[in-house]
Amino acid sequence: KKKPLTQEQLEDARRLKAIYEKKKNELGLSQESVADKMGMGQSGVGALFNGINALNAYNAALLAKILKVSVEEFSP
């Protein structure tokens, strides 16, 4: 059984999803295209955005690059 995410991890996910929602049209992104760039399925990206799975440093760095932001913008 997976450990529930901490409040901090949930807040990171909320900020990440908000940045994605704000930038997806400008950058021409969908959850599917983000998933392709990350080498995972769309459901995996959804789980990161919705605070189901915790972000690790690798995925955080990859998402920051895809969204053209710094990791600190969603994970201070």
Rank of each mutant, 00 (worst) to 15 (best):
K1F: 12
K1T: 11
K1L: 07
K1D: 15
K1W: 08
K1M: 12
K1C: 09
K2S: 12
K2Q: 12
K3W: 06
K3Q: 12
K3R: 11
K3E: 11
P4R: 13
L5T: 07
L5W: 03
T6C: 09
T6E: 07
T6L: 06
T6K: 09
T6S: 13
E8V: 04
E8Y: 01
E8Q: 09
L10H: 09
L10Q: 12
L10N: 06
L10F: 10
E11T: 07
E11H: 10
E11R: 07
D12C: 09
A13S: 09
A13E: 07
A13Y: 00
A13K: 00
A13V: 01
R14S: 09
R14V: 09
R15D: 00
R15N: 05
L16G: 03
L16C: 07
L16S: 04
L16P: 02
L16T: 04
K17W: 05
K17P: 01
K17A: 05
I19P: 02
I19D: 01
I19C: 08
E21M: 12
K22E: 12
K22V: 07
K22I: 08
K22G: 07
K22Q: 12
K23P: 01
K23E: 02
K23T: 02
K24H: 07
K24Y: 08
K24A: 09
K24T: 04
N25C: 12
N25R: 12
N25T: 12
E26S: 11
E26W: 07
E26R: 09
L27F: 03
L27T: 07
G28D: 08
G28Y: 04
G28C: 09
G28T: 06
G28S: 09
L29F: 05
L29G: 01
L29W: 01
L29T: 01
S30Q: 05
S30Y: 00
S30I: 01
Q31Y: 15
S33T: 14
S33P: 03
S33Q: 14
V34H: 02
V34S: 02
V34E: 02
V34K: 03
A35P: 03
A35M: 05
K37Y: 13
K37N: 07
M38A: 06
M38H: 05
M38I: 09
M38R: 03
M38T: 07
G39W: 01
G39M: 08
G39A: 08
M40Y: 08
M40C: 11
M40G: 05
M40F: 07
G41A: 15
G41P: 15
G41R: 14
Q42D: 05
Q42V: 15
Q42T: 15
Q42R: 13
Q42L: 14
S43V: 11
S43W: 05
S43P: 10
G44N: 14
G44Y: 14
G44K: 14
V45Q: 02
V45M: 06
G46H: 15
G46Q: 15
G46K: 15
A47R: 12
A47W: 01
A47S: 09
L48C: 03
L48A: 02
L48I: 11
L48E: 04
F49R: 04
N50P: 03
N50F: 00
N50L: 03
N50E: 12
N50Q: 09
G51Q: 00
G51M: 00
G51S: 01
G51F: 00
I52R: 13
I52K: 13
N53H: 13
A54K: 08
L55C: 01
L55E: 05
L55V: 04
N56F: 02
N56P: 02
N56E: 07
N56D: 14
A57K: 14
A57Y: 12
A57S: 14
Y58Q: 15
N59H: 12
N59A: 07
N59V: 07
A60T: 05
A61G: 13
A61I: 09
A61L: 09
A61P: 07
L62A: 14
L62V: 11
L63G: 05
L63Y: 02
K65L: 00
K65G: 08
K65P: 06
I66W: 03
I66E: 10
L67M: 07
L67A: 08
L67F: 08
K68T: 04
V69D: 08
S70H: 10
S70F: 08
S70C: 05
V71N: 05
V71K: 08
E72A: 15
E72G: 13
E72C: 12
E73F: 04
E73R: 04
E73W: 01
E73C: 07
F74G: 02
F74V: 04
F74S: 04
F74R: 03
S75R: 03
S75I: 00
S75L: 00
S75T: 01
P76Y: 07
P76D: 06
